[in-house]
């Protein structure tokens, strides 16, 4: 009976995992489908249900057209915005941590707004802001804020709070004496921060960076409202799949999925190996005793 219960658990987890991976597997399978139709061998991705035979052709064309430039744009925005957000956010967290209680509470509460706000509201507020500013600039006959700058500003803005809230707890754990000690030992304030405080809060900074990167790579809604002319990957996919249009090359799914899984596997196997090593060392220490 107990054995039956245990296998039932695994079956449940398996079914749920299948549910979560089904669309991904589906796209990967169909990335090997032959989509050339008609006598002209025109490529049409709109019918993702009809199997026409195996081919690798989709992988040859996966970056052609707008897909390649969209993917590049997504990566550029993601890395640029999360690096800037990490710098501003870390500095902000250090500042917030040494503020007095009342101003600190105000800043912390306002910073939580973008995390509580639905993406949709963030997106439309940026859309209105940029339309307004560009309107004013247009009347003055000045330059306009371009799509790249708009995307960058929006992505930095919704990422900063995630950096702040992963650095702040670290700062609270780290003692203020560290900074004082560095000053006493002859560091300038900047050196003290750079050489003593920053290394101490590094885990918080790096997890904030990863969060910012994830948020930016994953974003669809904000980019959809902010950008007019250029399309990050998610907007490209949406505009090619909604309203019965031409569809998207399913090979794109494999191209995104394989590096992602590889990266996560490496990170996790490393962690597992480290844990194993730690366990073995613990045992050795115990045996010596």
């Amino acid at each position: 009976m107990k054995k039956f219960g245990r296998s039932l658990k695994y079956v449940y987890l398996g079914v749920m995992l299948l549910f979560l991976y089904l669309p991904i597997i589906y796209l990967i399978v169909f990335s090997f489908n032959d989509f050339a139709v008609g006598s002209g061998r025109r490529i049409s991705y709109s019918n993702l249900g009809k199997w026409n035979g195996c081919t690798l052709a989709n992988y040859g064309t996966v970056f052609s057209g707008d897909a390649g430039s969209s993917l590049l744009l997504t990566l550029e925005i993601a890395f640029a915005s999360s690096i800037i957000a990490t710098i501003i956010g870390t500095a902000a967290a250090i500042g917030i941590n040494s503020m007095r209680k009342r101003p600190r509470n105000i800043v912390v509460n306002v910073s939580q707004l973008p995390m509580v706000n639905p993406d949709l509201v963030t997106g439309i507020t940026f859309m209105m802001l940029f339309a307004f500013v560009n309107g004013v600039l247009g009347k003055l006959g000045k330059f306009q804020i371009g799509d790249f700058a708009k995307l960058l500003i929006a992505h930095i803005s919704f990422s900063i709070p995630y950096v702040i809230f992963s650095v702040l707890p670290r700062l609270k754990q780290s003692s203020d004496l560290l900074y004082e000690a560095a000053l006493d030992l002859g560091c300038s304030p900047i050196q003290a921060l750079w050489k003593a405080v920053i290394p101490d809060i590094m885990p918080g900074i790096s997890s904030g960076f990863i969060m910012a990167l994830t948020m930016s790579l994953d974003d669809f809604v904000v980019s959809y409202f902010v950008a007019d002319r250029i399309q990050p990957l998610s907007v490209f996919i949406y505009s090619n799949t909604a309203h019965g249009s031409k569809g998207v090359n399913p090979a794109l799914a494999t191209i995104i999925f394989i590096p992602l899984v590889a990266m996560l596997l490496i990170v996790n196997l490393r962690r597992l190996a480290k844990e194993r090593e730690y366990e073995i060392q613990n045992k050795k220490v115990k045996m010596k005793k």
Binding site: L20, P23, L217, T241, V248
Partner: peptide, 23 residues
């Protein structure tokens, strides 16, 4: 369980449409 979260959700939704519409 968390890997699919990192994969573009518009793409996954698109795959569901194909599954529900044809498969």
């Amino acid at each position: 369980f968390f890997v699919p979260m990192w994969m573009n959700f518009v793409l996954r939704t698109y795959a569901w449409r194909a599954i529900l519409e044809y498969a």
